[in-house]
Computed example of a mutant assay.
Amino acid sequence: MEVCVIAKCTYKSETMMFSVSSESSMVDILKTLCLRFKGLQLGCFTLRYSLPSYPSCFLETDSDLDMMRTFLFVSNEKSVDILVKDLCGSSEYSGDFCVNKELIACEKGESSCSSTVEDRNEFLGRSKRASAKPLLSNEWETYIHHVGQKFDGGAEEFRLKLCKYALEVGFNFLYAGNDKKRVVAICSNKKLEGCSWRVYASRCEATGCFVIRTLNNVHTCVGRIRESKSKMMKSRVVSSLIVDRIRVKPELKPVEIIHEFKDYYGIDISYYHAWFGKELAKLNVHGDESKSFNELVWYADAVKETNPGSLCTLECEAGINRFRRFFVSFGGCIAGFQYCIPLLSSVILLLPDFLMVFPFLQSALF
């Protein structure tokens, strides 16, 4: 099956096109990209291609390439968008090989090409740093992926996952519309560089969940880089990530939160975001304390109304109405205690005689 399509490959603000036939391999594609894009080196980038309803598909192995060609043939597509995500930048990467020299050496059969390089699939794992520490945020890149995707948590869940997605992919966005029924977000480079990235989601009235209605998940602005500091890392995002930690360890300090985010997510957060994120997490776990205290007045009235004879006393500090103490004794308990008085009286009267028989208990009781 002869399949030849046009690959439109975008790196930073530049786009190049080349044909991909059934004879093409991943090594051919990687070589073409490294030769055409200045400063791009093997081991410093990943490839993703975009298809209708599937904007971020892996392109790392020859089998991925075959699957892409097959899908394009079945879908009768003549072109495909391939995105290059720069992971480290050519100035920071100091790998053990140079892509151009190694590829040329392999094709010429020179001895300088190692046995591991001779296998074409060995190139594929080098699109990411092998020594990079796995982060808990790696999965965030999959949070936004196709039209029709549902978010059972409504607008709040969609906004949180959108922020985490932007953090991991490495871009900032702005809200063009944001309320309980709809959320519209555009790339922050829309005005400066005319970036076409956009997502629109709204609430499904039948189920109450949020659904992505339209999605253009291709950035046409300058290449994106995942940064350790990002405007997308807000207190609500911090709260969503530490709520389980606060439930187990309420005394967790903001400084500890800052260190954990650096170690587990590779993200630097400010002390304010750590502190306020903790407060939001506590609010999520324990509820609003001020509202809870306000409910005491209602509770006292409800007890007196539904349980006649009850005694409820709410004491607050004069002038500032700060809570001091709350006492409650249910009417049923008060009435039942009346029958316990004769029994207690008998016990008190018999206690001296009891201690005379068992003198060793006197030291234990008094």
Rank of each mutant, 00 (worst) to 15 (best):
G154V: 05
L135A: 02
S112R: 02
F158Q: 01
S112H: 01
F123N: 02
V147Y: 06
S131C: 04
S90Q: 08
L174E: 14
T142H: 06
A132F: 08
T116Q: 04
V117Y: 00
H145V: 09
H146G: 12
G95C: 02
L167C: 14
K150P: 03
L136E: 08
D179W: 05
N138T: 13
E102C: 11
D96K: 05
S111A: 04
H145G: 06
D119S: 02
V169L: 09
K164L: 09
S137V: 09
K161M: 10
A105S: 13
F158I: 08
C98L: 12
V147H: 00
C88E: 13
L135R: 03
R159W: 05
W140M: 05
G154M: 04
D179C: 13
A130G: 11
G125H: 10
V169N: 02
E141V: 14
R159K: 15
E92N: 15
W140R: 01
S115M: 07
R126Q: 04
S114A: 06
S114G: 01
W140K: 03
D86A: 11
G154A: 07
T116W: 03
E122F: 15
K180F: 08
K150R: 15
G177R: 15
L160M: 14
G153C: 00
A132T: 12
N172D: 15
Y165C: 02
E102Q: 09
L103R: 01
Y175M: 11
L87Y: 13
V99P: 01
F171V: 14
D96W: 01
N178S: 14
V169F: 07
